[in-house]
Simulated assay, not measured.
Amino acid sequence: MENNPLLSIPSISEDTARDALVQYASSKCCYSTDPAEQLVFSNLEAHNTYRYRLETFTESRSTEWTHEAYSGQPVDAYTQPPPAPWVIPAKAPTMFEDATQEIKIPNTASVKPCHTCTGTGKTPCTKCTGCGSKQCWVCNGSGVRAGDESCHHCKGTGRTNCDDCKGTGLNSCDTCEGKGQLLVYIKLKIKWKNNVDDFVGDQQSGFPISRVSAVTGEKVFVDTQYMVYPAVGFPDPAISQAAERLVRQHHAQFAPTCRILQQRQTIELIPITKASYSFQEKQYTYFVYGAEHKVYTEDYPAKCCCCTII
């Protein structure tokens, strides 16, 4: 690892490290920027590492029965055998971008009575449970008001017509949209998915490697093919081993159930600098990482709890 020329890239400058910490403190409502502005650096140490990423772009297909309200659409069931799912043409989206598509499979559409309303196009009103009326809200169903006066709102009956079904007790069926019939057919569901796995070399610097997923670095190797061959002979043997393992793992995981359309493997150099400094005669450390110069620290010296959550 010591002989690796890419990992020997020097750490960032003191000005860059200081600016990153000032911005970090400014983003925290309870942090003072004084330590970041007044600190004295004692050491800036590079712990740059690599991230290997394998992307496998796959296409999967499944079928299911579905239905929609029938209003004169073509009916083609039993005219000839329906095509197999993988025979149906579909245009793939941009590579390495997730997408979905649904296609009506030819020669599967037939018309059937609606199963919800049994072909009537009507279902009992849920507001009045199908009786067409509900209790009068003025007299609470008694038919009279104070002083034994007949309720004028319900004309003394204690009930009023249901506003939802207009007193009929029935509403248009939602399933068939009141048509009474359904077009039933088989639907093809196509899913394009970019399956991504990362490996990051740990430099044992005390920096939590999981945070690298939120930043970018400098691409030092990019390979895009139908099926990539693992990157071998890389200066960091851990990256070569990860590449071989992930390529084998992706093939075993996706090839049996999906169609692999393309693969891409990338190696990025992720800059990580460990900054040691003193403030008010005490020693502290923090990390500046990624091309975005994000900051990670556990012992920033000027925190307070003066913020009030409203």
Rank of each mutant, 00 (worst) to 15 (best):
N4L: 07
N4Y: 13
N4C: 07
L6E: 09
I9R: 14
S13F: 10
A17Y: 15
A25T: 14
S32W: 04
T33R: 04
A46M: 05
R51N: 10
T56N: 07
F57C: 06
T58C: 07
S60C: 03
S62K: 10
Y70E: 07
V75P: 01
A77P: 10
P82F: 03
P83C: 13
W86F: 06
I88H: 07
P89K: 02
K91A: 11
A92S: 12
T94L: 15
M95S: 05
M95I: 02
I103N: 01
T118K: 00
Q135M: 14
W137T: 01
V144G: 05
R145D: 13
D148H: 09
H153F: 12
H153E: 10
K166T: 09
G167W: 12
G169Q: 08
N171S: 15
D174C: 05
C176G: 09
Q181T: 04
V184G: 01
I186H: 14
D198E: 15
V200Q: 09
P208H: 07
P208K: 06
P208F: 10
I209N: 00
R211P: 00
V212C: 01
F221N: 13
V222M: 12
D223I: 10
D223C: 15
P230G: 13
V232H: 08
V232S: 11
F234H: 03
P235K: 05
D236Y: 01
P237D: 14
I239A: 02
Q241R: 04
L246Y: 15
H250S: 11
H251Y: 13
R259Y: 05
R259F: 04
I260Q: 07
P271D: 05
I272E: 05
I272V: 14
S276H: 13
Y277A: 06
F279Q: 01
E281P: 08
V288G: 12
V295F: 00
V295N: 00
Y296S: 08
Y296V: 02
T297F: 10
E298G: 12
D299T: 12
A302F: 01
K303W: 13
C307I: 15
T308I: 13
I309T: 12
I309Q: 13
